[in-house]
Design a protein around this nucleic acid. Structure first.
Length: 500
DNA sequence: GTAGGGTTAG
């Protein structure tokens, strides 16, 4: 008899699927009843449980792992023996790409294992799955069940419930649960604040933020992120300065990710450099590829493509990922550097990266801004035939823009007409209208304008462009009447402005 | 166990 019940598996060991299969075959002859009743099997059973537990916890996002464990538990009828293992599996499903599996698992186990007693963890993970699904109706059902099971005042269950309601848009319910919680902690407050900020209820979020007992870095970052999402960049920067200078809170990597869009929207290169230095000092630039990628993007959007590209080259080959390459290509695209973008794309492929749909939007955009029409058409063809990516509206937009800029208006119009109507929008026609304006094509301009007006009548820019086309063709009366129509329809054209 | 996350046509 073995004295120790502690299984001989180190917790941090990585287990392969192959190993699990071997383990399964090792254990499968014994039914769970046998395992339980035979003392000689108890150590083996504990090992198995421990192994499955580590396997789930160490591969939380691997799609095959929970399925494998799930089928193992079903075939050996092991669910009845451990609610902890069941919860671990439920947690895995709730964070995986199909959280519906968590609900299916619950239903399955509820039907066949009536004696399994669910605990607070079970309901927390189920409600989390509803939040990921943004399924308010389902979430409400579990709210009812959870109350019935006596978790109405449970801090963790209620916190995850607040999160579910705020993320699924149930603002009234979310406020009710939050207000009625007998005990709240910083996570509860942050769930509420970051959730409201994400939903655009920034004023209420700010009110809670100012009134909360102790703000931590998550609260600050959530508020800053809320302001940048709402395009209130100066307020985001004000809050960031208050956090750093007045309160003395150290930004985290997430704070940097939240503040960088505000920095490049304002075009503050100095601030960009400051954040770069801070990231180096704190070690975020070594540890978090997301911060590095966001910095490549921010430098490029602040107009410093040289800094962006230099920064990219400084990232080691092993650290760079597809997003780093895509950010670089996107930077070259917005600077009209088509050749460099194409070269980067080729280097990326040589390094073994498989471009995704975003990469193709960026490289097509680069071809369009760099007047590389043939290359662009080749990329489009490559995307569809080699990488089997079905083009979305942005890819078509780039194509229309590319042909339009090159003066190949008829071809551009043909592409625009061929776009499946389920995905087509007025933006693609607006791009073509810009090209018609540049090349003074009145007839196509009129055709395109009427296409746009089918769906969007209140975008002032369209009237301005078309009236400019008409004026260019000396049809001043028509141009004038279009301007009058624009005013009558209350269409607004915001005047452009520059940061410098 | 519960909270914040990078690249995308005009």
């Amino acid at each position: 008899m073995l004295k120790s019940t502690k299984p001989p598996f180190p917790s941090k060991t990585k287990f392969s699927l192959w190993f699990l299969r071997s383990f399964n075959s090792l254990l499968s002859p014994g039914s769970p009843k046998q395992i339980e009743t035979h003392p000689s099997h108890s150590h083996q059973y504990n090992c198995q449980k421990y192994f499955l537990f580590s396997f789930l916890n160490e591969n939380p996002t691997n799609r095959r792992v929970p399925k494998q464990v799930h089928s193992h538990l079903l075939t050996t009828a092991s669910f009845s023996q451990s609610v902890r293992l069941f919860n671990a599996l439920l947690r895995c499903y709730s964070v995986c790409e199909n959280p519906k599996d968590a609900i299916f698992l619950y239903q399955q186990v509820q039907t066949f294992y009536l004696y399994l007693k669910f605990d607070s963890f079970t309901y927390a993970f189920l409600i989390k799955a509803c939040a990921s699904l943004a399924d308010l109706a389902l979430g409400k059902q579990f709210h009812g069940v959870e109350i019935k099971m006596g978790f109405e005042s449970h801090l963790y269950v209620q916190t995850v419930l607040v999160n579910m309601y705020v993320e699924s848009g149930g603002l009234i319910e979310c406020k009710k649960v939050f207000d009625e919680m007998p005990e709240k902690n910083h996570v509860t407050w942050n769930v509420m604040i970051t959730g409201l900020a994400k939903q655009g209820d920034i004023e209420i979020a700010r009110f809670l933020f100012e009134g909360m007992p102790d703000r931590n870095i998550v609260s600050w970052s959530g508020m800053i992120d809320g302001y940048t999402r709402m395009n209130r960049h100066r307020e985001a920067l004000r809050l960031f300065r208050r956090m750093v200078a007045d309160v003395g809170v150290d930004p985290s990597e997430i704070t940097l990710l939240a503040i960088l869009p505000a920095v490049w929207n304002i075009g503050d290169v100095k601030m960009c450099q400051l954040i770069h230095c801070y990231g180096l000092k704190r070690g975020f630039l070594l540890s978090d590829i997301r911060v590095m990628n966001s910095l490549i993007d921010a430098y490029a959007k602040c107009g410093c493509i040289v800094s962006a590209s230099r920064f990219f080259e400084d990232i080691s080959m092993t650290t760079r990922n597809l997003v780093s390459w895509t950010s670089l290509i996107s930077g070259f695209a917005m600077h009209g550097m088509g050749k460099e973008a194409v070269e980067s794309f080729e280097r990326m492929e040589q390094d073994g990266w498989k471009p995704n749909r975003v990469t193709f939007v960026c490289v097509l955009n680069a071809c369009s801004h760099g007047c590389l029409v043939e290359e662009g058409l080749n990329f489009f063809e490559k995307m569809v035939n080699e990488y089997r990516i079905s083009p979305d509206i942005k890819h078509y937009g780039c194509l229309v823009d590319m042909l339009g800029r090159a003066g190949r208006l008829e071809e551009a119009e043909q592409i625009a007409l061929q776009i499946p109507c389920e995905i087509s929008n007025e933006v693609v026609w607006r791009i073509l209208l810009g090209a018609c304006s540049f090349y003074g094509n009145v007839k196509m301009g009129e055709r395109v304008t009427s296409k746009i007006m089918e769906t969007e009548k209140r975008y002032g820019g369209d009237y301005v462009l078309m009236s400019n086309i008409l004026a260019g063709a000396r049809r001043f009366a028509d141009a004038e009447s279009l301007r009058t129509l624009m005013e009558k329809r209350n269409a607004i054209k915001v005047a452009g402005s520059s940061v410098t």
